Computed example of a mutant assay.
Amino acid sequence: MRCQPERGHLVYIWTKNNQFCALCDEPSGVERDLCGPCEDELPWLHDQCSICALPLLVDGMACGECLQRPPAFTRVETPWRYDFPLDALVTRFKHQGKWPLGRLLADGLARHLLHAYGEGLPRPDCLLPVPLAKRRLRQRGFNQATLLARWLGAQLQLPVDEQLLRRTLETPPQQDLDAATRQRNLRKAFALSHQVELRGRHVALVDDVLTTGATTQSLARLLRKAGAARVDVYCLARTAKPGD
């Protein structure tokens, strides 16, 4: 007795399934979980700092912070501002384990990066997910940055090194802390897990949201000290300054 359907008589074709939008719950009309109108309503990031992607009133200029204290990373690439309704999608992915939403957002970031490569952005040699503290990894069950890096690596055809960066210190939650406090918390919080030849290489850090940049700054400084020639940051969204 055969349990599988005969060839040419599939009982279910998932690529033909009518997808429903993750935001409005209406049929999306496409093979993605986001309909066209809702995708247009996402908080796309346009005018931004040319280095850290901080939302600005004018595009193509560096913000005052980057001019006064240039970061160790070269450029931040992100398609969105961290605002409604994108923040709800990120929260559901990150804190509720809704992996399909994370994959949906990773697809958008991959399309943004492919366009940027076409406009002249240098492609990195590999992707490095921002490491998560062991306690938080046990609580959450996964590292959202690792998942994003895997999905991006597959679409961009770039290798992913999930083991190079490790978190050596448990730090308190960073969400409600200012930049100076975050930076103090992250001193000596990261290390390289193994020796690798980084001299002259171009790497890209992958994370979900860039807030103050303290984490990426610490990691970029570590990588540059190890010989990396360039460190970029790829993330889903960038927050504005409080009050902006």
Rank of each mutant, 00 (worst) to 15 (best):
L164K: 03
S50I: 04
L23Q: 11
L210M: 11
P43R: 15
R123T: 14
Q157R: 05
G153C: 07
P71I: 05
R201C: 02
G29L: 09
G118F: 00
G118E: 10
D178V: 00
G60L: 10
Q195I: 02
C63G: 07
R140S: 09
Y12I: 01
V58G: 03
G102W: 02
A229Y: 03
R111Q: 15
H95E: 12
E65C: 08
E65F: 08
L121H: 12
A88Y: 12
L236S: 02
G97M: 15
K225E: 13
A226E: 06
A179N: 01
H46N: 14
V11S: 04
E41L: 07
T212L: 06
D107F: 04
L128R: 10
R167A: 03
N143G: 09
V203I: 10
R238T: 00
M1P: 01
Q157P: 00
H194Q: 10
L219G: 04
G108K: 07
T215Y: 01
P5R: 12
L86R: 00
E77V: 10
Q19K: 09
A229F: 06
P172A: 14
H194D: 02
Q163S: 12
Q195L: 13
L236G: 08
A149K: 13
S193V: 06
L101N: 08
A229H: 10
L223T: 00
Q139Y: 01
A106L: 05
L57F: 08
R111C: 09
L169R: 15
C3R: 09
Q139T: 13
